[in-house]
Design a binder for these strands. Sequence first.
RNA 1: GCACAGGUGACCGAGUGGUUAAUGGUAGCAGACUGUAAAUCUGCCGCUCUUCGGAGCUACGGAGGUUCGAAUCCUCCCCUGUGCA
Length: 411
Amino acid sequence: MTLPFTRLAESGPARHARIETAHGPVETPAFMPVGTAGTVKAVPQDVLENLGPEELGTQIILGNTYHLYLRPGHELVRKMGGLHRFMSWNRALLTDSGGFQVFSLSELRKVTEEGVSFRSHLDGTSHLFTPERSMEIQIALGADIVMAFDECTEHPAGRERARASMEMTLRWAKRSKDYFEAHKHEGPWGSGDLEGQNLNRDGDRLSSAQPGAAAVHDSITKPNAPALFGIVQGGMHADLRRESAERTVELDFPGYAIGGLSVGEPREQTMEMIAAVLEVLPKDKPRYVMGVGYPREIVQYAAMGVDMMDCVLPTRAARHGLLFTSEGRINIRNARYAQDQGPADPRCGCRVCQRYTRAYLRHLYVSAEPLAAVLNTIHNLAFYLDTMRAVRHAITLGDLSGVLSGSVSLV
RNA sequence: GCACAGGUGACCGAGUGGUUAAUGGUAGCAGACUGUAAAUCUGCCGCUCUUCGGAGCUACGGAGGUUCGAAUCCUCCCCUGUGCA
């Protein structure tokens, strides 16, 4: 099954397009908030939906195979009707494969050709992830976009190491695809209890009728089979990156991700790798750079022709008091904001900047009030989404110079 | 008034003769964060200089004393808590 990808405008290598998922459209270039454990930390789903105008709020978020498998367990999520229903998120959902945890939980795992044996960070129990297992779990979770199980190559990695890792990721990509194609229709929506509901994708309209949670859940539609994306690796070696891209494309996926970046390398190198891979990846399918980045970075990558990005930065940094603004970044904890009556970002139109002062946000943070995490995260995500909206607008107008220099208002 | 207990850096609280400007917390100040083991982690946190290696000064209720050396031992004084008058 292909994933409809309609290009609406182009400006140089940059594209503005629309992906049609079973759970609604995703306007690209898109930034995807990370919702590892079935929640974008600190932000309720309805707020995510309304981070932008109409349906242009958050259109897609991530979930994580490793975390949801360990807790609450993918079979439980399947029983609950899939991750969409479980978390009451009726828009697009992408699940990461657990490949990144191969990298980030390096002390708790062992990689073999078969897969990765993990020790759970929660209780120390042993588990084995294979490409097949990752697919099985992701299919059970019911995401719209499923990621191949890859090995996120550590940095630095010499040529031989990077090649070996890349080759294994390619073999795993083939295994991922084989299993996925054979089982992709076994999603949580398979049971009949979701039939007959009509397709109100919009949680807002539902809420006007004051439905109970069950009614909201029942509105979550039965999706088509998900789409599986392949992942390019190759370390920081441009020729390996190109080869990885070529051979991943040969396997034929409806979209392609570039993984293994922002793992400690300098930014110029990140750009170099992205540029090398984008030359090879087909232009008529979405291209997704995983795990990036700062606002300036995602604008640059989008300008290079990247369609999708995700990053924990806006959410995690928010919980640590770092706010992204049109003037750069501020640490709201700093004493100089103690009596600052201005909004976090004077050029931001988000609900947080419309209502609260820096002085108040600082007070909340310093007092360790939970609302600090909520408001800071809402602002950062709104800023990221605004940034991407401005990029899309600039592509439509055919001039990205403004957003690239940061001189264009992002509101 | 008597008897115990106790007075340590912004706060709480270790330390009971020497590597002690003084363990730990907290508060404070700043930095980091890139497919989330992260509401986390790191640094600074007496004063004054500094070629950033360090140098000098002042400090453990107050004043004296013992000692080569005291936050630590002795004497007196002040203050706090509890109990008894």
